[in-house]
Design a protein around this nucleic acid. Structure first.
Lengths: 256, 256
DNA sequence: CGCGATCTTGAACACGGTCAACTGACGTGG
DNA sequence: CCACGTCAGTTGACCGTGTTCAAGATCGCG
């Protein structure tokens, strides 16, 4: 039995989630627009995969509750975390090129996701150009975020990566109305390392170091930010090396 | 005076470029579809910027000839190369979220690009869902490519990065009908370093090393691949460390 | 020809990876 | 209830890759 569209907006928890949801526009359209299979919900328990690498892309997903990781699967079967997704985030955009998921998504804790079937998404976009444009924006945002991460992975020191990671999570929770100073990492040290391009030992040591400087308090996976300014400052410091390409001289700007 | 759409398909060089062009579909639509400002051409000379960080996004661009780099601009004004673009590639997708370019694109040699005004692109997509879908595919492909680069930057050794870089360029040229074994890098050592997350000294040393093993021949920026197999094999070797997250156990795959 | 930019190579060093020992939390079964 | 095993995390010691600093070589261009 399939829930009618919009039903998930009926309780308080959902209202929080939906307010921040990247698929909000699709959801709204879904409720008022005639047509086939609509948005449904799905639970994913800790450790379960929302989809695996190689699965056909059936849907786009939006996280309603919980925390998921998206991983590249290496030839030897090892995983590298590419991105992390919390409430309101969209998952599955990288599969649109081939209609097959090139990565896998796994729940770090019990999750609830909204599932928007691709066929339905395309139908909505055909009828409403603004909805199509919205999806393009989501795709483009993802690209911009990837660029940031490349710079992190290529050039920052271990301390900068870890500090940046804590600030990233802090900001993301804050933007959803949760505490920016105290939150749960949900990730094991090894997973943080995988996300940051570091070994778990280095992550552990670096967290201890940040705690020793009283910039954060860490107990297991619970973190409290004590000196956000100091963390930010780390990121502004000169990174690993000076191998950057100099600025462009003004004359070289192409006219018009 | 603006060229009529489709004019660029009239000479042989353009036919090669257009065959591989990511905007081909837009171009074709542009030619037959009524409406406002159409695709035009634009030259960008060595060292000139196609657009700068912060510029309003006027258009999407497709490379017709030449080689461009796309750079993140760091707070201190230094540049880090995010991607490289040759004939047939699209530039400017990361600006769609904000309508402002978050990066800059600079010509590494004299270039010619096709310019598709955003307004026109949106017009075409509204009329033709298939064209909108095509752009989504391009966006999604870009995301998938970014993921690969993250793994490279986070986990590969210097030798793997350089070998991978040479193979990447080789493949890209080959797919456009050019030699896969001999080509011009166009980049300075420093720029290769910026692209690969290495110092220019390390790039230089690594190239010397690959040359000493007779896997490649290098003279300045001209490269000849002598043992593609050996280069590929480097990439298959175990990377820097074992800090990967193990495979999922079968039971944890979520049902349906 | 001479100057600056690019590239190569060498030597020393440092960051973070590697290997290993140990702790603590948790769950299971005798 | 405690012994035991497992798994996550911490910390230490060592070491290797790649960065850093420095000196030349080579190239391109006026």
């Amino acid at each position: 039995m399939q829930k009618p569209p919009g039903i998930h907006a009926r309780n308080a928890r959902s209202q929080v989630a939906c307010a921040a949801c990247a698929l909000r526009e699709f959801c709204a359209a879904d409720a008022v627009y005639p047509g086939a299979p609509a948005i449904t919900h799905r639970r994913v328990r800790t450790g379960e995969a929302l989809f695996a690498r190689g699965d056909a892309q059936r849907s786009l997903y939006a996280v309603r509750a919980g925390f998921l990781k998206q991983c590249a699967v290496m030839p030897d079967g090892e995983r590298r975390i590419l991105s992390l997704h919390i409430m309101g985030d969209i998952i599955g955009l990288d599969a649109m090129a081939t209609a097959v998921h090139p990565t896998e998504a796994v729940a770090l804790n019990d999750c609830e996701v909204c599932e928007l079937p691709m066929a339905r998404a395309e139908q909505l976009m055909e009828g409403r150009p603004a909805t199509a444009a919205r999806l393009r924006i989501l795709l483009s945002e993802h690209i911009a975020r990837s660029s940031e991460r490349m710079v992190t992975l290529a050039w920052l020191t271990a301390r900068q990566r870890v500090a940046g990671f804590l600030l990233e999570l802090s900001d993301r929770w804050a933007r959803r109305g949760y505490s920016a100073i105290e939150f749960d990492l949900c990730l094991k040290r090894k997973e943080m390392g995988s996300y940051l391009g570091l070994t778990f030992e280095t992550v552990s040591r670096t967290l201890s170091d940040l705690a020793a400087r009283d910039w954060v308090a860490v107990r297991g996976r619970k973190v409290r930010i004590r000196d956000r300014g100091a963390l930010r400052q780390q990121l502004d410091m000169a990174p690993r090396d000076s191998n950057a390409i100099g600025p462009l001289i003004a004359a070289e700007r192409a006219p018009r």
